[in-house]
Amino acid sequence: MESKELIKRYIYAVTKHLPENKRQDVGQELESLIEETLAERSQGRPVSDADTKAVLMELGRPVELAAKYDPHTKDALIGQPHFSVYLRVLRIVLLAVTLGMAIASLLEGFITFESNVFVFFASVLSNIWQGLLGAFAWVTIIFAILYQKDVKLDYDKDDLEDLPAVPERHQEIKLRDIIASFIFTILFLILFVVVPQVNIPLVWENSGLIPVFNPEVLITLRWLFVAAASAQILNLSIRFLARRHTLPVFFTTLLEAILQVILLLTWFHTPNAFNPAFVELTNDFAPFMFEPANWAPLQSLPVAISAMPLLLLIILGGVLLGTLIDLITTGVKTFWGQKA
């Protein structure tokens, strides 16, 4: 290739990485530099192609030269301090997804009565692999965005005034609690959203496994389930980053509780929330479970609630009580800790 053409291409290869408004100026300056260097190198004799190549080689690879013009360019997808947090989150997520997918796939295999053991295990492994790939991709994408957009994590507060206080023992959130809740959330998502036909399977003599809840209803309400689980994941993520009871932890716990209540009331208000096959079998020995619980104390409640089958009311009451206790505990630890 002719020297002039080579120089033109080299300059283009450098400047195309630079902002539009700088390209022409940097290009002219590089051209001037290359000409001066060539003139000195050739000492009056005609410039050869070998001279040009040598000078351009000295200047280095176009991409590297372009990068020197903008030292703030991030040359990693996820750099520090985000990278250490990313690794920790990834480890927990992959562990939770492996456990969740394994349990869900095993249950699904039992439900569908897959007789070929090899096919069965291949499908379990394939499900776990797909789950892991998805989880890896999501965590990586989220952290790449956080890093590239310079979103500060609680870890990299560098202003002395901003350094977080060492949490009191009662304010600390234990990692094992976060991991346990996370595994539970993933399992909940998988059972009720990914394999709603399985949901909670009960072993029944002569009838095999029967899911407790009506899969069709679960499919209709799947976005509500996703919203509730997302709120819980958000809450757990904030707990993971803060590792103590802070206001954001309390407010995301509140959001999670509200979504759980909306989900439960919508779900249990739907006719046939239970699987008809499960209802039929239970009716054989405990018919009162599915009759409206016409207890006097419940009469004052809205009809939609007082007319619910007893079993639904028990579940609803249990979960609501659990949610309320969690919310109160978080609230007390947050506000008590703030004042302390």
Binding site: E29, L30, S32, L33, E36, E58, L59, L65, K68, P71
Partner: peptide
């Protein structure tokens, strides 16, 4: 730029042109 690279080299501070030009910018 080129003069700067030469003068610095003559003063015992050899710097590559591919360092000096982006730095000037």
């Amino acid at each position: 730029g080129y003069q700067l690279v030469k003068n610095l080299a003559d003063s015992g501070i050899p710097l590559e042109a591919n360092t000096v030009y982006p730095l000037l910018r």
